[in-house]
Each structure stands twice: as structure tokens, then as C-alpha cells.
Computed example of a mutant assay.
Amino acid sequence: MRFGVLGPLTVWDDEGKPVAVPGTKVRALLAALLAYGGGPVSADRLIEDLWGERLPGRPAGALQTKISQLRGALGRDRVSYRAPGYVLRLDDGAVDAGRFRTLLEQARADADPAARAAVFTEALALWRGPAYADFADAAFVRTAAAALEEQRLTALEERAEARLELGEHGPLADELSALVARHPLRERLRAAQIQALYGAGRQSEALASYRELSTRLAEELGVDPGPALAALHRSVLTQSLEPPAARPAPRLLLRPLPRSVYPPPHRQPHRL
């Protein structure tokens, strides 16, 4: 059985077919157990997550009902109690978020920019929408969802840097514009966009992007761009920026990951 949290909460059986988990509270219970890494999670914690201040008449009994319903959907041995709380049994590679992180590690260990970009693309293709999308307003998934979103953005930045090494400046410059607009204060992302614009022969746009970031940082945070970005700006200004070189680290051979059963969205290479 596989679980998807990189988008709406989804469960698949071993053949990749969706498994129905009926009821909003039952789905919330599953989301909570996944957000806590499978548990153990105390009954009090789960009751607060599911009902907050609007407690049912018999909270412990109501939780037991939801536990029973979740066991009915997933199998009785999938959810158990082990002091100090409830545990969701997860097989190796059972959660798409875990496979996402494993692929990121594999990509970062590869010195070949083409291979690195391809594995980052494979990892990003696991995303079907915002993490825990159908529980975005729930406090119990907020920390886990925010951590995953940060990992996703970092992966997008690292893939962009790999593509810069491959000389894909023109397409990358166009694709990064929308991402920079959504995350205008991320300096690493902005640096990739500036390098792509410059490499595509769009020096004035590269300089304008730096000015826009500098203004935003000053107005919103009261700080200047970091030293690395300032140095990049000087290189663009003096037309002395050299193309990024591939990392000299040796290539590591990793054991291939098993084929994923998570149904990915349309796999469009290099799409940001």
C-alpha cells in the first residue's frame, strides 16, 4: 500500500489502484498520522487535531470509531496502538514524500548535470499539487507541509543550476520568470534567473531583475542582497560572467530505486 501527500491525500494499493478512505474525519486522521511520520501519536493529540475546541460528547469513543473506520479502509494490521499512541505501519518507500527525498539525495550525489537534472525532474513529477492539499488549513499538517514545500523549491533551484551547466539559458530564463514572481525574495532562485537571462543575451533584463530584488529586500526586510548575489550582479554589469562549470566531484553509483507506483502527473521534462 502506498500513500500520497504531495497533493491531495491519496492511497493506492500494491497494484497502483486508488483505495477509498471515506469520511472527512477519517481522512484527517490518516493525514495526521502521516504528518507525524506514522506515529506513535497520543489519543489526546489526535482528538485535538480532529476536533479542536468543538469536541464530541465522548471524545475517546469518537476517536475509536474513526480508528475502526480507518482500519476498515486500510486493513486492521495497518493501524495499531503502541504506547504512547497510535501507529500507522508504513512499508519502505510507502509515502511519496519519502521517495521524493530519496530522489533528491540521489540527484545531489551525481556530478553529471544532465543526470542530475533528470533525477530532479523525476522527483518533482511526484507532486500533484500543494502538500496535504485537502488539509491545507489544518494546523496538524502545517509544519510537515511547509517543510516539503521548502524542499520542493530547493529542488527547483538545484535543477535550474544543473540546467545552467547544460547551457539551457533561453528556455530556463522564460520558465523561471513565473517561479520568481511567486517567490520574489529567494536569492538562490533569483541568481539562477539572472544567470539564465545573461546567458540568453538578455543583460538588461538580468540587471533589472537584480534591481527589483534589491528594492524588495530593502523595502520589505531592510537588508541588501547577499554577497554572492552582489558579486553576480557585478559580473553581469561588467559582462565578465563565465558560464557555470560542472562540479568536479566524482560520480557515485547508487542502487536504482524501485519503480514508483505513485501515478505522476504529465511528465514534462524541465518544466518549472
Rank of each mutant, 00 (worst) to 15 (best):
R255A: 10
P256L: 11
P225R: 11
F3V: 00
D92I: 07
G37T: 05
A144H: 07
E48G: 10
P84H: 10
R159Y: 11
E205Q: 14
D134W: 08
A117S: 14
A115V: 08
Y132T: 09
F100Q: 09
D110E: 13
R163E: 14
Y36I: 03
A138P: 00
L189F: 03
I194Y: 01
P269Y: 11
P84S: 10
L166H: 03
T154M: 03
D174S: 15
A115Q: 09
R182L: 14
A62N: 02
A155S: 09
L166W: 06
T215A: 13
S214A: 15
L179S: 10
V11E: 11
R108I: 02
L124C: 11
S68A: 15
L172T: 01
A200S: 14
P225G: 10
D77N: 06
L63K: 03
A146G: 09
G129V: 07
P244T: 12
G222D: 11
R71I: 08
A35D: 12
L237E: 13
R247D: 15
L197D: 02
L30W: 10
V180C: 11
V5D: 10
S209L: 10
D224G: 07
K17G: 00
A139S: 13
D13I: 08
S42W: 06
E168P: 02
T10Q: 14
R182K: 14
R271I: 04
Y132H: 13
R89Y: 03
V180N: 04
Y132Q: 13
Y36H: 15
D92C: 05
V5L: 15
L179W: 01
A160L: 12
V79M: 06
A32W: 05
P56W: 00
A181N: 09
A139P: 07
A249T: 02
L9H: 00
V11C: 12
G39V: 06
L254W: 01
T65S: 14
G222I: 03
L272S: 02
A123R: 00
Q195H: 04
V261R: 12
E187R: 05
Y86S: 11
R101Y: 00
V5Y: 05
I194C: 12
A139M: 08
G52C: 13
A114W: 02
A31Y: 06
L237F: 05
P59I: 05
E150N: 05
L172M: 06
A160F: 04
V141A: 11
K66I: 01
A160Q: 02
S209M: 01
V236N: 12
A107K: 03
L29K: 10
T121D: 15
R186Y: 01
A28V: 04
L29W: 11
A118K: 05
L252F: 01
A136F: 08
S240P: 02
P56D: 05
T10V: 02
R186F: 01
P263F: 08
R27A: 15
A218E: 14
G61T: 11
L232R: 03
R255L: 10
R2Q: 09
